[in-house]
Design a protein around this nucleic acid. Structure first.
Length: 221
DNA sequence: GGCCAGGACACCA
DNA sequence: TGGTGTCATGGC
């Protein structure tokens, strides 16, 4: 079994630093985490730009907007009715729990906060962990479809493994370091989006030992 | 025109 | 606990 740190190093060598999360402030990270659910990031950027232009990219701005108007602003992100509701649920939670102050929200026990976030309608495990890691700088590993696909292709886990089990698998094998978690997830997304194909020789992910030699080769090779 | 993209939830067995 | 349907736009 390839150590996760080795996979991380190969991803790093292949793709370089990813500089995640692409946002101007922690609240934008949280809004983006909701908007990007099962959606291309390019569509999310348009929705975020609309919210900014309307002066609504804040807990108060989102909370005070009629649902249909909020849905219209985030239309490009898809599932706009559901996501408008989720954004308002999160904004309400943030206002009620921490007076709209994310620094205050993340100041306490983050594992307790994770449970609270999971109780907010529209925030599932990946969204909660993205908020904790990228907005709150807490060592909560983010798992997504790419993580499951790549790790199962490498033979590390079963492809049907649950979110929580895969997250635990990762966190038990990595030191709880925010910069490492940040970069690892971002690299897995990048690898999954553009480059991860079954190896023509071994059938594994191209990060496998079989193909590790080729990591320095051009991406088109 | 079909497929996929940085999921979550309700409902059912 | 796990499987399935639904939510929906935009790029390729």
């Amino acid at each position: 079994m390839i150590p996760l740190v080795t996979i991380f190093e190969r991803l790093q060598a292949r793709h370089g630093p990813r500089h995640w999360w692409p946002a101007e402030n922690p609240f934008e990270v949280c809004a983006g985490a909701i908007l990007t659910q099962n959606t291309n990031w390019g569509n999310v950027e348009k929705a975020l730009a609309n919210l900014k232009a309307a002066g609504r990219l804040s807990p108060e701005g989102i909370s005070s907007l009629p649902p249909d108007q909020l849905a219209a602003l985030i239309r490009s992100a898809g599932y706009f009715n559901a996501k408008a509701r989720s954004l308002q649920e999160f904004a309400g939670f943030l206002l009620q729990t921490a007076q709209g102050d994310l620094a205050r929200l993340f100041a306490g026990d983050w594992q307790l906060l994770r449970q609270q976030l999971l109780s907010v309608r529209g925030i599932g495990p990946e969204t909660a962990d993205s908020m904790l890691l990228y907005a709150g700088q807490q060592p909560s590993f983010v798992v997504d479809a790419y993580t499951r696909r790549i790790f199962s292709r490498l033979g590390l886990v079963d492809p049907t493994i649950s979110y929580e089990l895969l997250r635990t698998f990762c966190m038990e094998r990595l030191p709880p370091e925010v910069p490492l978690y940040n970069e690892f997830h971002a690299l897995l997304v990048e690898h999954g989006k553009q480059h991860c194909r079954p190896c023509p020789r071994c059938g594994d992910c191209c990060l496998a030992d079989c193909c590790a030699f080729s990591l320095s080769a051009p991406l088109s090779a």
